[in-house]
Design a protein around this nucleic acid. Structure first.
Lengths: 145, 145
DNA sequence: GATCTCACTTGCAAATCACAAGTGACTAGG
DNA sequence: CCTAGTCACTTGTGATTTGCAAGTGAGATC
């Protein structure tokens, strides 16, 4: 517990440039991650901690594969620039990949890698928590994944 | 699976004003939540989906109780306005509460409610995932919770 | 080979965030 | 009690991120 708590207050933990140089612009671009602490939960949130990233993973758990425009069709209405950015991030992290890595972007869907599939238990727990504790505020909510 | 996918594309799912009128300004203020879809995972992310909220929960899992300034001491260095905002949100959701609800704000710590304690499995899964899949990018990472 | 669709990119306004500097209530010391 | 200090915030300002609308360019379709 609290294994990070002995750190000095003024020090930064590091920055890491993710990149996979496979081919298209989207895949070869680079993203810097500023790790806020050594805590694994904080690291997870450094990467996945926003309103959109895990919804992409959720869609891929539900549907196995999904194209860019299919993601756009999901009910939460992600905007195109955010979608492109998050797909780039998840690809560079090795959480998702193209179904046809060598092929052109058009109709080239995304799928989860083993790393992405390992997020399923966490998403199930989050969904379970919402079902139990958010339904009082939002009765129309339904299950997922 | 994909139980939300039959929704129309143009419809909004709703908005809900959270409020608990217990006493201090911080507790009685109101926050609007715009539910993006009926999906429970999306609902969870509507509420907890950012880089800071779950770190507050993590601290309370690690330490049982924490004051405002103790939260500020955590290594991720949350800023004061964001901390106040998230404490307000988590309080209005019933995820955390003050250890002395009737007392003054000064030295009045926060603790998890049963709802907050139910987030532990999800945080454990997220931490486990980070340990398994993020360590390659960030070797200094350590366990947590 | 012109048109269409798909997977993005770009530009700009709006919202959110980080950082620094207050503020006001309690509290300990003299 | 009066003053100085600490704690729990709030406020202001500039920087970053997001949302929305409008492109763009490459491959598929006709």
């Amino acid at each position: 517990m609290a294994a990070y708590s002995d750190r000095g207050l003024d020090q930064r933990d590091g920055r890491f440039d993710l990149a996979v140089g496979v081919g298209t612009d989207l895949e070869s671009e680079t993203q810097a991650i500023d790790w806020r602490s050594k805590c694994s939960i904080a690291a997870c949130l450094d990467v996945l901690g926003d309103k959109w990233t895990l919804l992409i993973v959720r869609d891929l758990i539900s549907y196995e594969t999904r194209t860019y425009s299919e993601f756009l069709g999901s009910p939460e209405r992600i905007s195109t620039n955010i979608l492109a950015d998050r797909l780039r991030l998840l690809t560079s992290l090795g959480v998702i990949e193209r179904t046809n890595p060598a092929g052109a972007a058009r109709n080239n869907a995304y799928r989860l890698t083993p790393s992405g599939r390992d997020l399923r238990p966490a998403l199930e727990e989050l969904g379970r928590w919402a079902q139990k504790h958010l339904k009082q505020y939002y009765p129309e909510m339904v299950e997922s994944v």
